[in-house]
Design a protein around this nucleic acid. Sequence first.
DNA 1: GATGAATGAGGATTCATTCAT
DNA 2: AATGAATGAATCCTCATTCAT
Lengths: 227, 227, 227, 227
Amino acid sequence: MTEAPISTQDTPQPAARRRSPDTAERILDAAEEYFGRKGYAGTTLRDVADQVGIRIPSLYNHFPNKAALYSAVLERGISPVLALLSRSIQGDETEPTEAMDPKATVRAVMQWLALRPSLPRLIQYELLAGGEQLAPLLSDWLEPAMNQGLAMMETTPGVERWRSQEIPFLVMALFNIVIGHFTTSALTQSLSPTPPLSEEGIEAAAHLYGQLVEALLQDAPTSPRPY
Amino acid sequence: MTEAPISTQDTPQPAARRRSPDTAERILDAAEEYFGRKGYAGTTLRDVADQVGIRIPSLYNHFPNKAALYSAVLERGISPVLALLSRSIQGDETEPTEAMDPKATVRAVMQWLALRPSLPRLIQYELLAGGEQLAPLLSDWLEPAMNQGLAMMETTPGVERWRSQEIPFLVMALFNIVIGHFTTSALTQSLSPTPPLSEEGIEAAAHLYGQLVEALLQDAPTSPRPY
Amino acid sequence: MTEAPISTQDTPQPAARRRSPDTAERILDAAEEYFGRKGYAGTTLRDVADQVGIRIPSLYNHFPNKAALYSAVLERGISPVLALLSRSIQGDETEPTEAMDPKATVRAVMQWLALRPSLPRLIQYELLAGGEQLAPLLSDWLEPAMNQGLAMMETTPGVERWRSQEIPFLVMALFNIVIGHFTTSALTQSLSPTPPLSEEGIEAAAHLYGQLVEALLQDAPTSPRPY
Amino acid sequence: MTEAPISTQDTPQPAARRRSPDTAERILDAAEEYFGRKGYAGTTLRDVADQVGIRIPSLYNHFPNKAALYSAVLERGISPVLALLSRSIQGDETEPTEAMDPKATVRAVMQWLALRPSLPRLIQYELLAGGEQLAPLLSDWLEPAMNQGLAMMETTPGVERWRSQEIPFLVMALFNIVIGHFTTSALTQSLSPTPPLSEEGIEAAAHLYGQLVEALLQDAPTSPRPY
DNA sequence: GATGAATGAGGATTCATTCAT
DNA sequence: AATGAATGAATCCTCATTCAT
């Protein structure tokens, strides 16, 4: 694209010459990295502007303020994951009735998150901050997913293993395992021979967590319920 | 102050100040709450001082600076958990050879964390920040624990289920489940009929996570390893 | 319109832009309102541009900078009043020797100002700022007016009432009464049963201030001059 | 303490040693000058801090923000004038029934304002800004004053000269004359041989405006009322 | 031990202005 | 003529820290 020195190139090619192919997008990239790395309070607009290579006031040509930039980052980051989850759970349009495969979902999500390592951290920070920005984004998905999960579990042999009240905790546990795999990588680093964020580490973890989910859906253990 | 050793102290005697049995401790309490709620960058010394009911400069009579206060909070908060874990894993001094009961450990830790809800959040924030303050505290414990866990697993029927490289991931998964139970409570709140931080919620979750651990230590599933 | 008599003009023809018969004029209108309402420092180019419905840089197509815009507003606003005053004082060209009628002048000015309520405020702001922009505009008029006024007074029965040094103060007092009627309307509002800016209020005030001028030109009071 | 070994000087005299006799007061002085000279929007905290000789953040040790500083300036500046007016109108406690002397009041107010030339400008700016800060301060005084003025006028020979609805306009006219004397001094400067803010100018103006008030209270002119 | 006051450094945001399109 | 984007300079304000009392 950028080459082809032969053609006389009379087209003005204004797009290619633009100082910034898309400044707003580059700002979002930089902000995602910083918000994910340092959190909202720990990120300064100077950090972001420097990373983009522009001056601070220029940020305001694209986002009205820091909070709006943060929201935009959150939304842009989370939407694809939710879409991924929705697809995994509800099945593709082509074969919508196909039962979802939890292991495949876990693997898909982890592989996606591995490509955007700031994202799990962003989510974790957001949850620590109260998750008020997250809730509206998730509400569109989480509740239906939860219901669908519940429905599915009720038609599965292992269903009698868990009480329905336990399902939310199970879902959140899985959520925490996956998100936590990325956010605690600093710690895992020193424990695991396999780097947790390496391709191999992701692969191994995805397999492991998948097995874990599978195990959870199997027959109940013998221990009685004390409560 | 330091002088006048003769007089029997007829000076008014700082009555107003005596209200605080230990100002440093109250500062730590306030700081733990704020650091846990807002993170290091999101917490101001004004927040802490206001919470304690003193002026900001007074903080410097007890801690040299914000970073040191943070470290102190972290240490004070984490030490008991580590002690708890050590005890659970290595057994009590009274009966040190007793094999550890993972379910009991999970329950004990969760019950302890439930009493100090800022703590899991503090840990999560710290991990997101890189965990550099946490590493030295954990290194004293995590590695031995890991080794002991490894040793234990090797003598357990379910051991052949996991590869030794997977153990760190499993340990971290459990860690994330437990910590995450508290840090994602905002989200769980809207999903679970049982409030996750209520006594009942803690109890149910502890039971659930214990079962989960138990399941992990049982016979392997049939799925082959793809890698 | 004046161009392209040949082609039938299928090009979109800047319809959207034609809405403004004279953008510069609309800018002046908006700026007069804002400068009068908030003063020079309190008015931003964004205020003006928003009011006009254009973007800020477009302002620079019509005025070189904020200061020039302000000067233009001031000049455009004040010129008619000066013309009005000139006419009132020097008499119309048709009957130039006719003696001026102070009451009529006051009334005329007030009625004119009532139509442009930003103007008195603009003048007041400008005076507070030092009046440096105002001075050159007024110098063409004020001094001759003052002289003419002086001359007139000397041929008037009440003249011996005031010393010539007092005349400037008297003139300024009248000026302040008239301008102040508009700038203090916020305050008068709560005192007067008649809204000061209503047609009725203007009428009543003009009458009142006219009487006042008349009274000033009548026989002197008996009180001696102490200085 | 460590010094002055001779004098008995048992009072610790800490006040005299303070770096600043009263920083808050000096800030108010500087702010009054600047707010009066440039208005609220035109005054920067740097202006004020520089004038005081401190750094900007130090301002915040005494006033929570710019708006509060402004309010404090306004209140401190206006209170004495109101007190002065109250005393003039209601009479001294020693002889409260004594009828007020408008000329004396005008003179007293003008002499007071001459000592604080920022004050009339401050008031004028505030009125232009809407007078929202002024209203509560004046409401305690203006209305009773107005009523008292009304009452007084009704017992005065000249009363039949003005309608009661005209009184507010008359009061405001007098107000504008006095305030305007100071705020339009820039303009008067070039007209009057006597500098309007000089002691002589104040004296002359006070006399003049007093006479004016007196004239207003005398017999009506012959001109009929047209409305 | 406690605090009022002061401050360097910085943080988000605004503003007037410029320039390429 | 209009404007999106960029920016130097400033503005208000906060923060952690110091110091004299």
